[in-house]
Structure formats: C-alpha cells, structure tokens
C-alpha cells in the first residue's frame, strides 16, 4: 500500500472529529471518501498532510511513518494537497501560484516543462497567466489549485471537494481532469460531498459517518448498496 491510515483519531478541543479510522490507498487509481457535512472527510485529509495532529494511531506513506511530521516535510515526500475551498493565493498571479507549487523543486528545466504541461492541460490558465488569482472564476481557481499541486510532481494527490460550488458543466470537466491525472499514474485520494460523481470516478470508497468508517468497498458495489443509495445518492 502507498498510504495507510491506521486507527487514527483526531480531536478538536474536546470533540472527537475522527475515531480510529483505518484506510488504505494503493499505488494507483482513485480512492474516495464520501460522507455528510461534518463527517470528518476534510479532517482525514488534513491529518494526512500534517495540518492537524493525531490523538492516536499513525499514518504511513511508502512504508515511512509521516504522522507527527510538519506539513512542509510531508509535502516534500510528494503528497500534493488541493485543500477545501481551493485556497489559491489571491494576490499572486496565476503563474506565481504555480511557482509556489514548485517551491521544493530544484530541477529548473523540468519545472519549465511542467509549467507548459499544466498550461496545456488547463488552457484557460494559460490565457490568464498574468492575472491575479482572485480575479478568476470558481472553476478556474479550482483548476489553478489542482495545477499548483501538480507542480510538486506529487507521488499522490489529495483532493478536497473539488466540485464544491461549481456549475454542473464545470463539475464534469473537473471529473474528466481527475480521471486524466489518475491515468498519468498519480494515485488520487478524493474527498467529495457529491457522492454520485465520486463513486463514478473511484475504484474504491470509504463512507465516513460521524468520524468513523461506516462502510467501505469497491466503488461500483457501494453505488448499488441500499444504505448508500438512500443516504448519499438521494435514491
């Protein structure tokens, strides 16, 4: 397994946000975490990236324990994180935002070719490369946030609610992009409230309910599961 979360718990003040969750991400494909608002999906990704400390348990990436490391150290191991709400740097240009994504890279010529790769993947970013990120639309900001994470040349990509607040056409485009990225060999851990989209994209899925893993399984099978259909697919 590429990433293993082992019986990990997270508490905010006195409230337990995650309770002994265990999940695995293999070295290829898309794994998704679905669940209602406040189920702990975002917290799970934040724990992997080191933004929140674990109260118990551990997280292991490529056989190495990463829980307890600072976020910048975890990024240096190759975990790219596209945070909830995109979090692009508003007063940096598109190009500067992408540059910060390449902050840890020392291979200048490969970085240059990655710039071109991101621009050809997202032509709308290429058109706006000198614009401040705050002037972009929601969909464009999402693309920029994904592009920024790709500039790290991640060994694994964490995506937090990439469809949030976007028009259906744009959501479709984002879904295509996620499939593309996975196709280039980058494993993806996708957190989504849009369970329909997530289960369609993913190979494997975890269902979080009030901080615990309620259910997990092959995405196609969960798509047919009665409980999942009633609770998350509105069927």
């Amino acid at each position: 397994m590429l990433l293993e979360v082992r019986a990990a718990s997270v508490s905010y003040k006195m409230v337990r946000a995650l309770h002994r969750i265990t999940m695995e991400v293999p070295a290829g494909g898309i794994v998704t975490i679905i669940g209602a608002n406040g189920a702990g999906k975002t917290t799970a990704l934040r724990a992997i990236s080191g933004l929140v400390p674990l109260a118990e348990g551990e997280i292991v990436f490529e056989g190495e324990r990463i829980s307890g490391l600072a976020p910048e150290r975890i990024a240096a191991l190759g975990i790219g994180h596209v945070p909830e709400g995109r979090r692009v740097f508003p007063d940096l240009t598109v190009e500067e935002n992408l540059s910060t994504g390449a902050f840890l890279r020392r291979d200048a010529s490969a970085v240059r070719s990655d710039f071109e790769a991101v621009y050809s993947r997202f032509p709308r970013l290429a058109e706006r490369r000198r614009q401040y990120a705050r002037t972009l639309s929601g969909g464009e900001q999402q693309m920029l946030a994904i592009g920024r994470a790709l500039m790290l040349r991640p060994r694994m990509l964490l995506l937090d609610e990439p469809s949030m607040g976007l028009a259906p056409v744009i959501v479709e485009e984002i879904a295509r992009i996620i499939r593309d990225i996975s196709g280039t060999g980058v494993p993806v851990l996708l957190v989504e409230q849009n369970a329909e989209m997530a289960l369609e994209l993913a190979d494997y899925a975890y269902v979080l309910e009030t901080g615990s893993v309620a259910l997990s399984g092959v995405a196609d099978e969960l798509h047919g599961d009665d409980h999942v259909r009633r609770a998350y697919l509105g069927a």
């Binding site: 990024a75 979090r87 940096l92 902050f103």
Partner: peptide, 24 residues
C-alpha cells in the same frame, strides 16, 4: 525569487503555503 514568492504566499495563506512545502 523563490523565497520572495514563498513570503508573499505565507502572508496570504499560511496553511496553503505549508502545503506547498514552504516552512513557516
């Protein structure tokens, strides 16, 4: 410069900057 971008990014969103590998 690389650290110049890092400083501006840190001022705008410290957490997002840390996710890019920038040490606060």
């Amino acid at each position: 410069t690389r650290w110049g971008f890092a400083l501006r990014a840190s001022a705008q969103d410290p957490e997002a900057a840390a996710l890019q590998g920038i040490s606060m």
